[in-house]
């Protein structure tokens, strides 16, 4: 299968701290991959480098595009990377709390629409059509993700699990080819986690979406991912299929080093 993302030798320094140290990682088109590791391993930092929030200290991040040369993402602006088809959710939920659920998703359509100030003031037919499309598409996404009952609710008033799903809905609205999920199941109950699992499977199947998942819930990771990358202290300590990871001594050691989350699989 073709690659969609290829990260080579990625390093990120914060002063003296090497949060990422020569990490290599690749994702194939339409595949769900997972990135795991103990707290502070550098997982979120990798997402931040990938989405332009941090400028990596060295290394290459290559995004493959259909019918074009791969694009190097290093140093691009955050919104440019989103327009190229990479969308993400945040570990510590960052919804637009004062806006409604629907408006949150509509913001995600920004990159895929274009009417400007004059359009806003004069509302020519083109703008009206576009605006209607934004609303409809956003609502369709909310339905797809089972958030339709909440459309007009303020985002900050949603229950926690629904907020996590709204983050995904908002990311989907940007029409990504690669979706980055940072601990989407954190804070969810087992029931919600199972629903999330179903949703991700559906997403990948319906949209041929490639997904990179950071998650501490090993069951979810093992069920979903075909390929798992393990980070510890900014270094890649293992990669492979769920089966390989489960029995990898280095991984077991990294996790047992901490006390919590000890059982793998």
């Amino acid at each position: 299968m073709d690659l969609i993302l290829d990260i080579k030798n990625l390093t990120m320094n914060f002063g003296g701290l090497k949060a990422l140290d020569g990490v290599n990682l690749h994702i194939r088109q339409g595949e769900i991959a997972a990135l795991i590791g103990p707290n502070g391993a550098g997982k979120t930092t990798l997402f931040n480098c990938l989405t332009g929030i941090y400028a990596p200290s060295s290394g290459d991040i290559l995004l493959y595009q259909p019918g074009a040369k791969p694009k190097r993402l290093n140093g691009l602006k955050i919104n440019t990377i989103t327009s190229l088809g990479v969308a993400r959710t945040f570990q510590n939920i960052r919804l637009f709390g004062g806006m409604t659920v629907l408006e949150n998703v509509m913001i995600g359509r920004h990159a895929r629409s274009k009417s400007g100030i004059l359009g806003a003031i004069f509302r020519p037919p083109a703008t009206r059509v576009e605006e209607k499309a934004i609303v409809d598409k956003s609502y369709a996404i909310l339905e797809y993700i089972d958030l339709a009952p909440y459309v007009n609710e303020l985002a900050k008033n949603l229950p926690y699990g629904a907020q996590r799903r709204l983050e995904i809905a908002r990311a989907l609205a940007t029409e990504p080819r690669l979706l980055l999920l940072d601990e989407p199941a954190a804070g969810m109950n087992p029931q919600e986690t199972r629903e999330l699992e179903g949703l991700l499977v559906r997403l990948q199947a319906d949209h041929e979406l490639s997904i990179l998942l950071i998650e501490h819930d090993m069951k979810l990771v093992m069920n979903l991912a075909r390929n798992i990358f393990v980070l510890d202290y900014g270094e890649e300590i293992a990669r492979g299929t769920p089966l390989e990871i489960r029995h990898n001594p280095a991984v077991i050691k990294a996790y047992l080093g901490e006390e919590a989350d000890a059982e793998i699989g």
């Binding site: 955050i78 919104n79 989103t82 919804l95 637009f96 806006m99 509509m106 806003a120 605006e131 934004i134």
Partner: peptide
């Protein structure tokens, strides 16, 4: 009209969370 437009929504999102706003593809 501005307030209820694509631009107006982008402004409000910018006010709410600058980073998330950029991650949604808005040029800050």
């Amino acid at each position: 009209r501005l307030q209820h437009s694509r631009i107006g929504r982008a402004w409000v999102a910018l006010r709410e969370d600058e980073l998330a706003c950029q991650a949604m593809g808005i040029d800050k």
